[in-house]
Design a protein around this nucleic acid. Structure first.
Lengths: 214, 214
DNA sequence: TATACTAATGAACAATGTTCAACTCTTGAT
DNA sequence: ATCAAGAGTTGAACATTGTTCATTAGTATA
């Protein structure tokens, strides 16, 4: 009775193909720009087949979100596995987070900004890698506190504060709100021409202030 | 020739009415939920008349964004005009920012998260009140540095870091990403049932860490 | 070979932003 | 009072896009 299994495999393969196509199209245009018809055409199926696999566009992008979390987690893990000074590890993990967001703004939106694919977080499976990303941060924070390069406050609050800050930076950057720094819009603020570097620099400054305080 | 002026006034009044209606509808449903037809009906005009006043939906919501910034700035200014201890002032301005975002999540999205109404920030008029909000923060930060409750780093970086953190908190909250803290999703993290208060508490903690370091 | 089941198809539907030719009303001149 | 010109209004029609579903095609089993 291997027929059942083969059909399951084929079904799964098609599902994966659709997710891959959706991810790619999404990466270069965002949610609105991806049309179900385009996905179908790229997969060389009719649109109905997409709906055979995914309840609707939102459900499809839950799967894309999950894939995006996998990629992001991989990217983060690749930067932390070394034997580093804890403070450098904190710098590294933050910088990796920021650079991933800047390199893949649409995926970043899907993971942390859009609400389409979030309605009902009753589905924690899809957030598995997202949670692991947070645990990666938590681990480094705890390590920093033990070694004394971060003050010994509530580690959850510290992780939350650091995550919020880098997320705030990335999301403001992605939505072009940092453009207020780019021209002569603010008095006493010389135009900043490289916001990406300012983000990294400011993050490190904050880490250092915390560490000096510890 | 007062006729020209009267017509201009009427035109301006209609424009304002449309913006008010759009703001109200937007406040209770977000961008997608607002239909041009609904706005027209609420204003008791046909849809064509809306397009006579605003090039398209995006342009209309540029105006709504501007109105939202006005409200937010007012709200912020109302909390800072008192003669306060600089650190309390910093707490107050941050808390006001957070509370406005929580009270008006859709307007917050429009101001700081959506990109529809942002394409082309070649239009700094609409950001006037938004810029003033930033200046409010800058002023308090400078004051804190003078008095010695914030370390004397680059004030632009400090303002940017603080803004990013509270924006990160509010936007993660609004998009329900803080739900990861609400259940048993993270090991070693007791479920947090009141994220709003955690945001305020964490912000104050960070302010205090900075101030102790100064 | 016939039957039953699964999967694929794409025309059709609904919702919504946008356009535009027709229409109405006001204004100013005759 | 009448009329021409112009500004403002109307809503039917169009284009796009997510979604559905009756029909068709393909495959497996008796």
């Amino acid at each position: 009775m291997g027929i059942q299994e083969r059909k399951m495999r084929e079904r799964e393969a098609l599902r994966r193909q659709i997710i891959a196509i959706a991810t790619e199209q999404f990466s270069t245009g965002g949610y609105e720009a991806v049309k179900m018809r385009d996905i179908a055409e790229a997969a060389e199926y009719s649109v109905g087949t997409i709906y055979n696999q995914f309840e609707d566009k939102n459900t499809l992008f839950l799967a894309v979100q999950e894939a995006a979390f996998e990629r992001a987690l991989e990217h983060m893990q690749a930067t932390v596995n070394g034997e580093m000074d804890p403070l450098d590890e904190l710098h590294a993990i933050g910088e990796a987070y920021i650079r991933f967001g800047l390199a893949h703004p649409h995926l970043y939106r899907l993971m942390f900004m859009l609400d389409s694919p979030m309605q009902a977080l009753d589905r924690p499976e899809g957030w598995s890698c997202g949670l692991q990303m947070h645990q990666l941060l938590s681990a480094v924070v705890n390590e920093c506190m033990e070694v004394g390069v971060l003050p010994q406050v509530d580690p959850v609050q510290m992780s939350f504060a650091l995550w919020s800050m880098v997320h705030g930076m990335v999301s403001l950057r992605i939505t072009e709100r940092l453009d207020i720094y780019s021209g002569e819009h603010l008095p006493d603020v010389p135009p900043i021409h490289n916001p990406d570097e300012m983000m990294i620099k400011t993050m490190r400054m904050v880490h250092h202030l915390f560490s000096d305080q510890a």
